[in-house]
Each structure stands twice: as structure tokens, then as C-alpha cells.
Design a protein around this nucleic acid. Structure first.
Length: 143
DNA sequence: GCCAACGTTGGC
DNA sequence: GCCAACGTTGGC
């Protein structure tokens, strides 16, 4: 049996790598580089083909703007020094949220208090539970 | 192996 | 620009 699909959240500063840039890559997607934290790395290693994630704009915007999908599982980060342990996955843009979900909304919701977005502020690649995924999808106008 | 100092992230 | 949270480094 195929393992249940998992959900994630990818943080990016939009002035470095924005949703629009991700979308412009089309179905080919791109590798998600720059992760230099062991917890985030562990999350990357756990990802399977077809897992979905939210695309979050940190710093400017502070909102979840889109949905991405994992199209290649973890492999060595091409931007890391040889011998470094860091990995990337490939992701592609799937669709934008009809209405971006802001950090303020997530905080105010009450059902999302345990999200890593709030609990682990600095973690750049985070797990999202199925329940959280559904709530945010609704807030974002996706169902 | 502990912990103080320091650097980085990211919200405000 | 400030600072809280947290990770990493290095002295002991």
C-alpha cells in the first residue's frame, strides 16, 4: 500500500525566491536549496513524490500564497560544499491560494495554534498535519 | 559534556 | 532597527 500523502510548508523570502518565480518555472519546477538546518533537512528526507506543501512568504507578506508538489525526492544539494550533508528536493507550483492566508489569520484562528509556523518560528521546512492542511485550504478558498 | 558567546532568522 | 528564539561554536 502506498504511504499516506504528507503535507509540508516551505518558507521563502519573496525578494529571494517568490511564488511568482516558482510558478514561472512551470511543471519542471526547481530544487529547493539553502536548507542548512538539521530538522529542516530531516523533513526534506522524509518527503515522497506527490507530497504537497504550502508556499509561505516570510518577512515580506507573511502569508501562505500557494500549493506546491514534490516532484523529486531528496538528493545532495548542488549548492553545498562537497561532502556536506545537505539535501534538496524538487518542487513545482500546483496552484495559488485564491485568498492568501496570512500569519495573523493563522494566529487568530484558534485551531492552528500548534502549527510549526507558530511553534517553530525559525524552521524553514515544516510538517503540516492533514487537519491543518484542510483548514488552511478552506481559508485560502481552495474548497 | 557544559555553557557562554555569538550569529541568524524572522516577526514586530 | 530591535529583539526573542534558537542553532552553532569553542573554551574549559
Amino acid at each position: 500500500m502506498r504511504p499516506a500523502k504528507r503535507y509540508w510548508l516551505f518558507k521563502s523570502e519573496p525578494n529571494k525566491w517568490s511564488w511568482d518565480m516558482q510558478k514561472a518555472r512551470g511543471p519542471k519546477g526547481t530544487f529547493w536549496d539553502g536548507v542548512r538546518n538539521h530538522v529542516a533537512k530531516k523533513n526534506l528526507m522524509t518527503m515522497k513524490l506527490g507530497d504537497q506543501g504550502f508556499f509561505y512568504h516570510s518577512n515580506e507578506g507573511k502569508e501562505i500564497v500557494g500549493v506546491v508538489e514534490v516532484i523529486r525526492e531528496a538528493y545532495p544539494d548542488p549548492t553545498a560544499e562537497a561532502g556536506d550533508p545537505w539535501v534538496v528536493v524538487d518542487i513545482k507550483a500546483v496552484r495559488p491560494l485564491l485568498r492568501p492566508v496570512t500569519l495573523a489569520q493563522v494566529r487568530a484562528d484558534g485551531r492552528l495554534d500548534n502549527m510549526a509556523l507558530i511553534k517553530a518560528v525559525r524552521l524553514s521546512v515544516q510538517p503540516v498535519t492533514k487537519a491543518e492542511w484542510q483548514i488552511i485550504s478552506e481559508l485560502g478558498g481552495l474548497r
